[in-house]
Simulated scan of single mutants.
Amino acid sequence: MLYGKALRDEIASAGTTPLIGVYDMYSASLAAAHYDGLFVSGFGFAASYYGLPDIGFIAWPDMVAFAERLRGAFPRHHLLVDIDDGYVDAELACHVVRRLERSGISGVVLEDQKRPRRCGHTEGKQVLPLEEYLAKLNQVLESRTDLLVVARTDATDDEEIMHRASALAATDADVVLVDGVRSVEAIRRIRGVIGNKPLLFNQIAGGKSPRLSLSELAALGVDVAIYSTPCLFAAHRAMEEAMAELKATDGRLPSVDGSSRAGAGAAVGAGEVTAMLTENLRRHSTR
């Protein structure tokens, strides 16, 4: 299957394509039951895998291994992976891209940030000289065959944002992302300068960008939207509440029906796995 082509075709269809941010296999199981596209964000992966902020701690083998596990578990879903700045140098970025493409990943996001990097919705971001980033981006584009590539800029000055968005749109990158867009008007301006190139919008709760529905994004000419943190933030809130309740009741578990346990089992395919094991045992016992 050509996963990159499949995602390109989906993005080219009418409306705005949603890709839901996941941070581990369990969150991916839940998101995959509701949406056809998943996104691995650096924010969520750094928090869940390392317990650290998204400021450049991610090691590329860890991200590749996680992406490979996701593809094995969800062979029919679109899967976009955040590879930050390509892990510093262009040669390594190309190696990672080739590994991910061989693993069946649909696409990657490559940013123009300078180290030490920051989450796209925080202050203090610095960007590489445009020519340096374009050289890295073009090497990555030449190293892929089918993989979709999102060219991302983290510029914060309005004039520089438009200049870089236009430059990224002129490359062979499949999609352009300006992270940390602060207004609907800015989205319209970016849409205007990148021509027919598909536009991606990053939605993160509590971030700098406006909260918009898929219908509103489609009306603005946005082709694809990534939702970086809904699973992570929901889990954080639920676990905080559960721990506070457990502590307040002197360690007594709350009274719940069996649906919670059954739901958790269903999310990880407990029924299918049990049925498979039962069938295997039956076959062996009849030999």
Score class of each variant (00 low, 15 high):
Ile55Phe: 12
Arg117Phe: 03
Val108Arg: 01
Arg99Ala: 12
Ile58Met: 15
Glu101Cys: 10
Asp112Cys: 04
Ile55Val: 15
Gly56Gln: 09
Phe57Tyr: 15
Phe57Cys: 12
Met63Arg: 14
Tyr87Val: 02
Val96Gly: 04
Leu92Ser: 10
Asp82Tyr: 04
Trp60Ile: 03
Phe66Pro: 05
Asp89Ile: 04
Trp60Glu: 09
Phe57Pro: 09
Ala73Pro: 00
Glu91Val: 15
Gly104Leu: 07
Gly72His: 05
Gly72Arg: 13
Asp62Ile: 03
Val81Lys: 04
Phe74Cys: 06
Leu52His: 10
Asp62Val: 11
Glu91Trp: 12
Asp89Cys: 12
Ala93Phe: 09
His77Leu: 06
Glu101Met: 09
Phe74Trp: 07
His77Lys: 15
Asp85Tyr: 05
Arg99His: 06
Ala93Leu: 12
Pro53Asp: 10
Ala67Gln: 10
Phe74Arg: 08
Asp82Val: 10
Gly86Ala: 10
Val81Thr: 05
Val108Phe: 05
Gly107Met: 00
His121Ala: 05
Leu110Asn: 00
Val81Trp: 01
Ile58Asp: 06
Tyr87His: 15
Val97Ala: 15
Gly86Lys: 09
Cys119Val: 11
Gly86Gln: 05
Lys114Glu: 14
Arg102Val: 01
Val81Gln: 05
Pro75Ala: 11
Leu80Phe: 07
Glu111Asn: 08
Ala59Cys: 11
Leu80Ala: 03
Tyr87Asp: 07
Asp84Tyr: 07
Leu79Asn: 05
Ala90Lys: 10
Leu100Phe: 00
Asp54Arg: 09
Leu110Gln: 08
Gly120His: 01
His77Cys: 04
Ala93Glu: 02
Asp85Ser: 15
Leu79Tyr: 02
Ala67Pro: 02
Ala93Tyr: 02
Asp82Met: 07
Tyr87Phe: 15
Val108Ile: 15
Asp112Phe: 04
Gly107Ser: 04
Gly104Trp: 04
His78Arg: 10
His77Ile: 07
Phe66Asn: 02
His77Ala: 07
Arg102Met: 11
Arg118Glu: 06
Arg117Asn: 07
Ala73Ser: 15
Ala73Gly: 02
Val96Ile: 13
Ile83Leu: 08
Ala90Gln: 08
His77Phe: 00
Arg117Ala: 10
Ala59Lys: 14
Val108Pro: 02
His95Thr: 13
Val109Phe: 07
Arg115Trp: 14
Phe66Tyr: 13
Asp85Asn: 15
Arg118His: 14
Asp54His: 11
Arg118Ser: 08
Tyr87Leu: 11
His95Trp: 08
Asp54Met: 10
Ala67Trp: 07
Phe57Thr: 07
Ile55Tyr: 11
Glu111Ser: 13
Pro75Lys: 05
Arg76His: 13
Ala90Phe: 06
Leu79His: 03
Ile55Gln: 10
Gly107Leu: 05
Glu101Ile: 12
Ala93Thr: 11
Leu80Met: 13
Ala65Lys: 13
Pro53Thr: 00
Gly120Lys: 03
His78Gly: 02
Ala65Trp: 09
Arg117Leu: 11
Leu110Tyr: 03
Pro116Lys: 03
Pro61Phe: 08
Asp84Asn: 08
Phe66Lys: 06
Phe66Trp: 03
Val109Gln: 10
Ile105Met: 09
